[in-house]
Simulated scan of single mutants.
Amino acid sequence: MKEYLHKTIPNLKPFDYARHHDDLFINQQWVLVNGISKKKSIYTFRKDNILEISRKQSIIETSWTIDIQNVFSIETEDGLITVKAYFKDDDVLVLNHQNKKEFALFINTANYDEDVNSIEDVQAFLKEKYKQKVANLIYGHEFYYIEKSEEFGPFTVEELEEKAKKEEISMYCFVRDINENDYSKRLRIYDLIKEL
């Protein structure tokens, strides 16, 4: 079952109590993505093992526990289920059912200004989140560029943008990250600037 999950959602990190429990898990409002178009559910795991499930104007209180192997037992409307928790990143939580080939995907929208009520809203949230993540990675990072078979650099994106604005280099020069060996990704200065 674990292989199925990791093929569906790659690069998951297992729940780490010390790292995730207090800062990323407890008292966060996790929006359940599964079935969001039918009904929006928000799960809040409280410290005293209370699980609050909010739907429209009703709140259901149930319980959850975690064992030493980081396996969660959660009381749901369908009975007691056991799940393993994984984080895709700080705002994406996956609970993998231990007895079925099923998982629940949650997003934490605490740092997002828009309401998330549909699959389209989830897509917009993820697009904005990863666009911001890419922009954060690009800022301050350095790249080489190649022009007329000669390599120059490294330069930050801001420096490359300035050179392109002054028409010292073409916006369509290929660039490579300082950690890459070649230009096989076919990334251009234009592509970097577009992500900022």
Score class of each variant (00 low, 15 high):
Gln57Ser: 10
Glu158Gln: 10
Lys13His: 05
Glu162Thr: 07
Ile81Lys: 08
His6Ser: 07
Glu167Gln: 14
Asn111Glu: 08
Lys148Ala: 11
Pro14Thr: 10
Arg55Lys: 15
Lys127Asn: 13
Ser63Thr: 10
Glu161Cys: 06
Ile81Leu: 10
Trp30Tyr: 00
Val31Gly: 01
Ile68Pro: 03
Phe15Met: 02
Gly153Glu: 04
Val33Leu: 04
Lys56Leu: 14
Lys7Ile: 01
Tyr17Lys: 13
Pro14Val: 09
Lys101Cys: 08
Thr76Ser: 10
Lys7Asp: 03
Ile119Arg: 05
Ser170Ile: 10
Ile66Thr: 04
Lys7Val: 01
Thr8Lys: 13
Ala110Pro: 00
Ser149Asn: 13
Asp67Gly: 08
Thr62Glu: 05
Ser73Leu: 09
Leu105Ser: 11
Thr65Ile: 05
Phe143Tyr: 15
Glu77Val: 05
Asn99Gln: 14
Phe125Tyr: 13
Lys100His: 06
Ala85Cys: 14
Thr65His: 10
Pro10Ala: 09
Ile178His: 05
Tyr145Met: 03
Lys194Glu: 13
Lys194Ser: 08
Ser54Ala: 14
Tyr139Val: 13
Lys133Cys: 07
Ala135Arg: 12
Leu196Thr: 04
Tyr130Lys: 07
Ile68Arg: 11
Phe174Glu: 04
Leu160Ala: 02
Leu137Val: 06
Glu195Pro: 04
His97Val: 01
Glu120Arg: 09
Val94Gly: 07
Phe103Tyr: 15
Tyr139His: 12
Glu120Asn: 14
Leu24Pro: 01
Phe87Met: 06
Phe45Thr: 05
Gln123Trp: 05
Ala104Thr: 02
Leu137Gln: 15
Asn96Gly: 12
Ala124Met: 12
Val157Leu: 08
Lys129Ala: 07
Glu120Thr: 11
Ile26Lys: 03
Phe125Asp: 02
Glu120Ser: 13
Asp121Ala: 12
Glu102Gln: 09
Met171Val: 06
Ile138Gln: 04
Tyr190Ala: 11
Leu160Asn: 01
Ile36Met: 03
Lys131Gly: 13
Glu75Gly: 03
Lys40Pro: 01
Glu161Phe: 09
Lys165Tyr: 13
Asp67Ala: 10
Leu187Met: 14
Ser54Val: 09
Asn99Lys: 14
Ile68Thr: 12
Tyr172Lys: 12
Ser149Tyr: 07
Lys47Arg: 11
Leu126Ala: 09
Lys148Trp: 06
Lys39Leu: 09
Lys56Ser: 15
Ser170Gly: 09
Phe25Gly: 00
Val83Lys: 07
Trp30Leu: 00
His21Tyr: 15
Glu151Phe: 07
Val92Leu: 04
Arg55Gly: 03
Tyr190Asp: 10
Leu126Phe: 08
Asp90Gln: 11
His21Trp: 08
Arg176Tyr: 03
Gln29Lys: 14
Asn111Val: 06
Glu161Pro: 01
Asn11Phe: 13
Arg19Val: 13
Val83Tyr: 11
Gln29Asp: 12
Pro154Gln: 09
Lys166Ser: 08
Arg176Lys: 15
Asp48Val: 08
Leu32Glu: 00
Glu195Asp: 06
Ile42Ala: 01
Ile193Val: 15
Tyr183Asn: 05
Thr65Tyr: 09
His20Phe: 02
